[in-house]
């Protein structure tokens, strides 16, 4: 449904600021595909290229078989897009915004109401309220309604959950799952690693390069070094200590514990516990864990060649 081949793009007068470097991936029909990466990693640039808003410097890309450069207007007819920057008219009411977007997409609210119904009922009590007076989560929901109103074949969502609280984020992802079941292909970007697990497949992107494309489950298997979790009350001291130990790579806080990426041959968890206890971390507990996507991302980021 979406195919990206060797796309590169740079900004600046002399093209001296690279935004994307040889990006490659494919998204199948009906897939919920996540683009995971921090701010400035090139996610928005990629979205703009795929939605025909800007042209790539080199490489090709196609959406639903249409070339992003040559078939610009065909693509614009079949995609829905929710830009990262909030794109509703603050001085128009919820209803007016939705009606406006329905009309410019040559449809009416009634025609595709079933698509947005689940979301729209939540904002319907505020139908006459100006969009500017809605809370962040409500605005996101309205924006999604507007992007969905014409029943697009492909939906592009650029960081829809940034700055939205956990509850709204969860609800938002439930909606995406329902849309997927309607057969809509969804490309979504997010800086939140925990949302990655909710996608069918994900691409990790950093500094304009794709680090890895895989299913969340397969991705954690690409990790070549084991990850250990060390829990203690003396987080900072333990961190200092662990970094000085041989055979231990990166050490970083992770949730309630510390994660340490250790050398492949390193097996002795009990020994490590003992060493920590001797050094004064009496409450140290060490366990081998399966790495999370965030572990993988950090590991790959460090390995990636720096541009």
């Amino acid at each position: 449904m979406i195919s990206v081949n060797q796309i590169s793009k740079a900004y600046g007068a002399k093209k001296e600021i690279p935004a994307l470097t040889s990006v490659d991936f494919e998204v199948s029909k009906g897939e919920l595909f996540g683009l995971i990466g921090p701010d400035g990693s090139g996610k928005t640039t990629l979205f703009r290229i795929l939605t025909t808003l800007i042209l790539a410097d080199s490489g090709t890309a196609a959406v639903a078989g249409f070339d992003v450069e040559k078939d610009m207007f065909k693509i614009r007819n079949i995609v829905g897009y929710m830009p990262g920057r909030f794109s509703l008219y603050q001085d128009l009411s919820v209803r007016e915004n939705l009606e406006f977007y329905a009309t410019i997409f040559n449809t009416t609210i009634e025609k595709n109401y079933h698509l947005i119904k689940d979301i729209y009922v939540q904002i319907e009590p505020f139908a006459n309220r100006r969009a500017g007076a809605l809370s962040g989560g409500m605005k996101q929901k309205l924006a999604l309604c507007c992007a969905l109103i014409h029943k697009p074949e492909v939906l592009f969502l650029d960081e829809p959950t940034t700055g939205v609280d956990v509850v709204s984020r969860k609800e938002f992802w439930e909606m995406l799952k329902r849309l997927k079941s309607e057969g809509i292909t969804i490309l979504v970007s997010t800086p939140y690693m925990d949302e990655a697990e909710l996608c069918d497949r994900i691409a990790l992107i950093d500094k304009g390069r794709i680090l890895e494309v895989a299913t969340p489950a397969a991705l954690v298997n690409t990790m070549d070094s084991p990850v250990w979790a060390i829990s203690t009350g003396k987080v900072y001291a333990a961190m200092q200590l662990l970094s000085s130990f041989e055979g231990i790579g990166e050490v970083y806080p992770f949730g309630e514990s510390l994660h340490a990426v250790v050398d492949a041959g390193f097996k002795d968890t009990a020994g490590l516990k003992l060493r920590l206890q001797k050094a004064g971390i009496a409450d140290a507990e060490v366990a081998i864990i399966s790495p999370t996507i965030e572990d993988v991302f950090m590991h790959k980021m460090k390995q990636a060649p720096h541009a």
């Binding site: 703009r48 808003l53 929710m82 830009p83 990262g84 920057r85 794109s87 410019i104 507007c146 592009f156």
Partner: peptide, 14 residues
């Protein structure tokens, strides 16, 4: 500036 143009451009409207 508000980003509305992005959404309008990615619509069938010329």
């Amino acid at each position: 500036e508000l980003g509305n143009m992005e959404m309008l451009l990615v619509s069938p409207t010329h």
